Simulated assay, not measured.
Amino acid sequence: MKVLAFDVKSSVAHFRRPDTTATQLTYPFIPPTAAKGLVGAILGIEDFTTNDKVGIELRSNVRLVSQQLSLLHNGGSSFNRPTTIQLLVEPAYRIYYAGEQFFNELEIALKEKQFVYTTYLGSAFAITTPVYAGTWEMSEVLDTGKTYRVRSIIPVTAIKELIPKDGHYYQRASGFMKRYEGNRTFSQSIDFIFEQSGKKLLVKPKLNQEEYQLVEIEGDLVCLV
């Protein structure tokens, strides 16, 4: 199957967790739904929904800071309210994209650097410019007995065994929405395992093609959701 990739980075990012109110916390990396939202912005499709899949590779350390900002109150232009927002510092990601609905359109847009809407990482103050990284013919992983290096974030349910390595700091990130159904509605949740600095995981995977796809690139595993 064909998989393309593009890189995005910014000085800051904020992917707000919907279960936070007074203090606006962020997910530790770009959610799959936000990565697909980037594709919608590139193609100029509002309320973008798709069955195509994405994989997310961390290409920077996950660094978080909290910053108090003065935000405009909904009640009028004369009142500002201080709000504490958690920010990701200097995030960088490689987004893998596969599927039949928008693959060709996206590949052309990335190669020609023609983006319809402004692209950003979760908030309007986190502008980013996608950079085409390449297109590969990848083989789907069917061997669950083999140990793989994983270059993307990977769902908890996709791991049969995680082999720990010295100097690696593993974390679990929970409560991500998996599918965007349109009209600001989401379905299904998904939890991920990742390494704090973006180092590759070493795992024996489990297969579940209905929930995710595992593909191999240059000897490494990429998980598409």
Results as ranks from 00 to 15, higher is better:
70 S>D: 10
70 S>G: 06
71 L>N: 04
71 L>V: 14
71 L>E: 11
72 L>C: 07
72 L>H: 04
72 L>K: 15
73 H>L: 08
73 H>S: 15
74 N>Q: 14
75 G>V: 15
76 G>F: 07
77 S>V: 13
77 S>D: 11
77 S>L: 12
78 S>Y: 11
78 S>N: 13
81 R>S: 12
82 P>W: 05
83 T>C: 07
83 T>S: 06
84 T>E: 14
84 T>R: 11
84 T>W: 10
85 I>R: 03
86 Q>Y: 02
86 Q>I: 07
86 Q>N: 06
87 L>G: 04
89 V>A: 00
90 E>P: 00
93 Y>K: 04
94 R>W: 02
94 R>E: 03
95 I>V: 13
95 I>H: 09
96 Y>M: 05
97 Y>F: 15
98 A>G: 13
98 A>E: 08
98 A>R: 10
98 A>N: 05
99 G>R: 05
99 G>I: 08
101 Q>E: 15
102 F>V: 01
102 F>C: 01
102 F>G: 02
103 F>W: 05
103 F>D: 04
104 N>A: 11
104 N>Q: 15
104 N>T: 12
105 E>T: 03
109 A>T: 00
109 A>Q: 04
109 A>D: 03
110 L>G: 10
110 L>V: 03
110 L>P: 03
112 E>R: 13
113 K>V: 01
113 K>I: 00
114 Q>L: 06
114 Q>T: 09
115 F>I: 02
115 F>C: 06
116 V>A: 12
117 Y>P: 00
118 T>Y: 00
120 Y>L: 01
121 L>S: 03
121 L>W: 07
122 G>K: 04
123 S>E: 13
124 A>N: 10
126 A>T: 03
127 I>H: 11
127 I>C: 04
127 I>R: 13
128 T>R: 10
129 T>Y: 12
131 V>Q: 15
131 V>M: 12
132 Y>L: 09
133 A>Q: 13
133 A>W: 06
136 W>G: 11
137 E>M: 12
137 E>R: 14
137 E>V: 14
137 E>W: 02
138 M>D: 02
138 M>S: 13
138 M>L: 08
140 E>G: 01
140 E>A: 05
140 E>S: 07
141 V>M: 03
141 V>H: 04
141 V>G: 04
141 V>D: 05
144 T>K: 14
145 G>A: 05
145 G>H: 08
146 K>R: 13
147 T>L: 11
147 T>S: 11
147 T>Y: 09
149 R>S: 10
149 R>M: 06
150 V>W: 01
150 V>N: 02
150 V>T: 09
